[in-house]
Write a protein that binds this DNA or RNA. Sequence first.
DNA 1: ACGCTCTTGTGAACGTTTGCACAAAGTCGG
DNA 2: CCGACTTTGTGCAAACGTTCACAAGAGCGT
Lengths: 235, 235
Amino acid sequence: MSRRAVSANGRSGHGSQGIPEATIARLPVYLRVLYAFAEQDIPTVSSEELAAAAGVNSAKLRKDLSHLGSYGTRGVGYDVEYLVYQVSRELGLTQDWPVVIVGAGNLGRALANYGGFASRGFRIAAVLDSDPEVVGTQIAGHGVLDVEQMEQVVARHRVSIGVIATPAGTAQAVCDRLVATGVTSILNFAPVVLNVPSGVDVRKVDLSIELQILAFHAQRRSVVRVPQDAQAVGR
Amino acid sequence: MSRRAVSANGRSGHGSQGIPEATIARLPVYLRVLYAFAEQDIPTVSSEELAAAAGVNSAKLRKDLSHLGSYGTRGVGYDVEYLVYQVSRELGLTQDWPVVIVGAGNLGRALANYGGFASRGFRIAAVLDSDPEVVGTQIAGHGVLDVEQMEQVVARHRVSIGVIATPAGTAQAVCDRLVATGVTSILNFAPVVLNVPSGVDVRKVDLSIELQILAFHAQRRSVVRVPQDAQAVGR
DNA sequence: ACGCTCTTGTGAACGTTTGCACAAAGTCGG
DNA sequence: CCGACTTTGTGCAAACGTTCACAAGAGCGT
């Protein structure tokens, strides 16, 4: 989902040009699974193994990977380390992405403390909040700054990714301000539909939407009264 | 996978039978926007207005709603209150959904405190944790229970939705246990691919995946060097 | 009652995503 | 060097999703 305002569909071909959105959304999963294999010192994996670990069909996985190039060896599989590198590069994780988190409430704190955050590619440039009670406190090794300092922080650290973890009421204002300071990628945790100019990429994470989708399927299951037969509801 | 369980769609009619997954995922957004209109005492909305507020194409919105039935009035639009009811019913929100949250760390706390949680349809049956330091503390009006009481809690409250907010390492074990106690819908915040038997519905929310997708597009934009208008129509 | 305006609901065209099935390309034992 | 075996990469068709465009209805003023 996540409307992307960026169409920028260039020429065809193999490069990083025409990778389908659906594939992009799966690459991070593959990457995570690959790291798990690497940690077990497994040198190569077949598409079948990788697909099983990632929870997808192996043909789909192969097609996905084929969009990045021809990095496998027929009869053998994929070199784990090499593939980690290629997928990382494709996703842009070989460079450093400073991130600013706006909102230091429960959620902002959870995000700042989230380990996988700083681990690979992403670095918290600052945590901002508007509450004077919270400004100045420490979260995950970062002093919380006043939201008024957004402009300086974004400029100084060359931040291009902003995370909105504020209440719904202030999310749009924060978003507008982030965009005005030059942030072009926004991850929104507030339960509102953000309005952004084209050229800005917004993705949303919304607990209640996910719960409602689960409720729909749960209801259907209980109403339709599925007997016992095999039927995968999963995604 | 995920083959439609409803094989022979009996009546090709409108029932809750054949609603596309993509539509389901948007209904909660429409619902939220509808509540916003209702709060402003706006009695009817056109598909155009609703679509704009939800950030989608109006034809798509109309087609989505048409899957639930014919609830609009030509020349007028949709009655807000009536549509709220119909969408809620379709999503199964007219009944109560007890939810158990496993993991009372930063994230679990943020989730429990999330207002929109209890608001409509969902109710926290219990917050569980395994850390003796945390068990017994209060979170959002709920005493944190030991994870050992999962079985009792699930049975007593007839919980069918579980939220996993534990570290990655224990997520699968928690998941297995939830499934064993009869939970059939799981919302997973841990950065792992969960393995579940068929018949169990899993949705995942993953910060780092979203960030990586943003990074990909951000990288592409900076590499391709989009001029200034970044508009559609890639020539 | 009539014609004008507005808006829904949907057929049809188009685009994207998935999955099968298999040729191409590699490894390995002898 | 060969033949058996394994696994990738991809052409193709089907399934799914989006968008356009417009006929069918519904309201309203005269």
